[in-house]
Design a protein around this nucleic acid. Structure first.
Lengths: 323, 323
DNA sequence: TCAAAAGTGTTATCCTTACACCCATGT
DNA sequence: ACATGGGTGTAAGGATAACACTTTTGA
């Protein structure tokens, strides 16, 4: 097929009426908690999102415009996450309309009060309570483990059972494999498939497992988008200096550590964390000190912007404290 | 704004006539060369792509259907790359139509003869000759370095010059920083901004640098999409066992090494490569041998599919030979 | 016999991890 | 005095990178 024919085919296909939605996962860390901006509705929380309009020159510009008028947040770092487009996704818009949703991750250094009454900063562990290991193993994992065990037992044959077992082990770990904070999306999708999450039932999925109260559900597939965002962010802090998008100008190193811990949902080893960060040349001394942290006054450091130029020299390793 | 209002706004926005294009970067490795399926046109090569149609249940299903009818390739591994949507992107479709393009990366284990006369497997280094360091530093880098030097010199002030210098160093390396194979997209974007690539002029970018023959251009922004795909693939082989999607059932370890080298564009250290791959438990012995490689007969191994279950145990480290 | 590829052994070095310990401030 | 957080030293263990070397085939 030639390019001309292809273009003609594209032209025909526009009869279909496609609407494109830009959804934003807007993240900040406040009071040692990772928070996302959510829109409260009578049913469930939703991510802020709006339609792509003709006046938007680029997708990202459209997103920024939309978010800034709706929530009064000025976005700093913005990154495209994924484009979601199953036709079953949104029955609300009718049969002849396909609805695509382009998800974005945005980081803001400080939580501004939301600009609209129905918008609110929410701790993201409200939706994913099993992801926060900072104070040890979350108790809800007992319930989840029981639900997953039942799901494994429901397998149709031995080979499917082994697959299911391996999948549970891989995502949720077990005695010999320790917790891995990264595969947030894999864990959510597993819970969805196992029917342990209310969304699975709402979407008409046939499951025998009854939904346990595994975190608060969200509107449409927004919890999946949020899981995608957390996964991406937990991965990215390790190889790009993105955490600093969430920090003020000057900060003590423990503040940086607590921010990383909030995102990763694990505790880090303080002495090694400091050495890694300083050794990588990611921060520089400001000469200033603060006594606000309690204890011995803390040196205030700032992000070394030359680090961005030197570039590829990655992000922050996670010296996870096992114990 | 409530969800109801938001839905209404979406409904209105569908008046805009949005067309969605699914583009595929279909990769195989054949004869130790990384190849992509390209559609020849009179102007430049294009990536196979087609419109999203109502009958496609999911985006990925739409892509598979399209590619399979158009090129007779059956896709194995498929992964979404990025959604491109600048309104300046495609002037061809007229003013009132916005054209989105969702890029996909697909891997096929063996090059089937293309199903249409205008489709052809192309060595991807045809489009990115500076990315192939397997036989030492590509000579074209002399030309590129000269062009970039001129671009740095054209900076408006000292601070912009330092930024440009750092960017060149970061992406293309220099004496103390060795070559880093990963940032393919960053390099392409730098060449684009520096006006060293024909696309920049075609898109009406004002540059004083004259385009050097830095690789063959492609239709629209397809070379950018290809660069995105290569970047993703070079990154991914290091932490997921995706290379095996390109391998036959059984193969000698050197074949695997040559495949990884073809993708990464660098030479690897044979003894260490073997130890890393075997040590990770990524392959298992088949008991069979082949003499087709020349020299001492080689053990044939296969991918250990249990490795997928064990999961997170990453991909293949690259013991790059520095010499 | 030589070229070509397969494969093994071993060491120096670096990085991470873990543990122990001292410092400076407020109450 | 002691609690709290800031901050430094260092040694064990593991992983990587580099080098040297042996084995088995075909021409």
């Amino acid at each position: 097929m030639s390019i001309a024919e292809r273009l003609a085919a594209e032209e025909r296909s526009t009869q279909q009426s496609i609407s494109v939605d830009l959804s934003a996962v807007i993240v900040t860390v406040d009071d040692e908690q990772p928070k996302v901006l959510a829109i409260r509705t009578d049913k469930a929380d939703a991510l802020p999102s709006g339609p792509l309009e003709p006046r938007h020159r680029t997708l990202e510009a459209g997103l920024r415009a939309w978010v800034e008028t709706q929530t009064r947040q000025t976005l700093g770092y913005v990154e495209q996450l994924y484009t979601f487009g199953d036709s079953g996704r949104s029955a609300a818009t009718g049969a002849n309309t396909r609805s695509l949703s382009i998800g974005y991750l945005a980081l803001v250094p400080e939580a501004q009060p939301p600009g609209t009454p129905d918008a609110e900063w929410r701790n993201w562990y409200r939706y994913f309570p099993w992801e926060d290991w900072r104070n040890g193993r979350p108790p809800i994992l007992d319930e989840i483990a029981a639900g997953l065990k039942a799901w494994v037992a429901q397998a149709e044959d031995a080979s499917q059972r082994r697959l299911r077992e391996a999948r549970v082990r891989r995502t949720f770990g077990n005695r010999n494999r320790p917790w891995n904070e990264e595969p947030v999306l894999d864990r959510y999708e597993l819970l969805y498939e196992a029917g342990l999450v209310p969304e699975a039932h709402r979407d008409g999925r046939k499951t025998s497992g009854k939904p346990i109260s595994a975190g608060e559900p969200m509107f449409a597939d927004h919890r999946r988008i949020l899981a995608t965002a957390i996964t991406r962010l937990r991965g990215k802090i390790k190889y790009r200096p993105v955490v600093f998008e969430l920090m003020p100008e000057m900060f003590p190193l423990l503040h940086l550590q607590r921010t990383v811990e909030a995102l990763a949902g694990v505790r880090l080893h303080k002495p090694n964390f400091r050495r890694l960060v300083e050794g990588q040349g990611l921060v520089e001394d400001t000469g200033a000190y603060t006594t606000e942290t309690g204890g011995r006054p803390a040196r205030l450091v700032r992000f070394r912007s030359e680090a961005l130029l030197e570039g590829m020299t990655g992000g922050i390793r996670l010296p996870v404290v096992r114990s």
